[in-house]
Write a protein that binds this DNA or RNA. Structure first.
Lengths: 122, 122
DNA sequence: TTCACCAACATAGTTAACCTAGTTGGCTTG
DNA sequence: CAAGCCAACTAGGTTAACTATGTTGGTGAA
């Protein structure tokens, strides 16, 4: 599949999947083919497929659920239309605040559970 | 460097570099340390550093020149006006990460305070 | 029936290795 | 001296292997 145009394979696959998503060929809520299937379909290695899916994941077009699959997100929640410019700053501030608070809780929890071995092996 | 907070190393490095760029510590036009230097500084493998740089590259914060280095782009010129796609992607990734981390913390708290650390095996 | 276990499959993260290709600076050779 | 070669850097792309972890369905025992 991945044609030999200077464009890297993982970008070609990401482009193709993105086009399918935005073109409606892959509807929201539906899972992408598995990594192995995509690798087979595009005649690429698992690594490049994982890189391509990682890009879409980073773009928010798609959300991966470990053990289940990678699902197309709803177009509305994935791409808020209109002027979100004003909300961006507030969102960023909120996220920053949450990050700091969560990090503190995590550290507290880590130090308090380090003595007693809770939930380590399987 | 990359602390064991559950957040993947390549995201931690990307976050750190992004913060340095947006904080002015890495001025536009200046090159990032080389891949090898970053790997050494963050005590990470070359692969995760390359993934981290790839994210910033994808976000348009940085541009790589083969054979020379990876350079910080000018924050104003780098992005066509109105293209907050990268901002949104970044925010979404952060929120997703926060959700996962919070869920883990919540479960740790639940299992350590109510039950014995057996953690419902399924 | 119900529970526990297990095998198969899924995403996710990490590492190492190899290759291509551009850049730079020094050294050799004409 | 000047041209060209070459070694040592750089980023970028690809692959393979391994680990961790979550999901699901089947199987067998209580």
């Amino acid at each position: 599949m991945v044609r030999n145009t200077g464009r890297p394979g993982y970008l070609q696959i990401a482009d193709d999947l993105r086009a399918q998503i935005q073109g409606g060929s892959l509807a929201p809520g539906t899972p992408l083919p598995s990594t192995a299937q995509l690798a087979d379909r595009y005649d690429a290695s698992l690594s490049v497929v994982k890189m391509a899916v990682g890009i879409l994941r980073n773009e928010g077009l798609v959300i991966g659920q470990q053990g289940k699959g990678v699902f197309v997100r709803d177009a509305d929640e994935e791409r808020p239309a209109g002027d979100e410019q004003a909300d961006l700053a507030e969102l960023r501030a909120t996220v920053r605040d949450l990050s700091v608070r969560l990090a503190k809780v995590e550290e507290q929890l880590a130090t308090s559970t380090s003595r007693r071995p809770g939930r380590s092996s399987r």
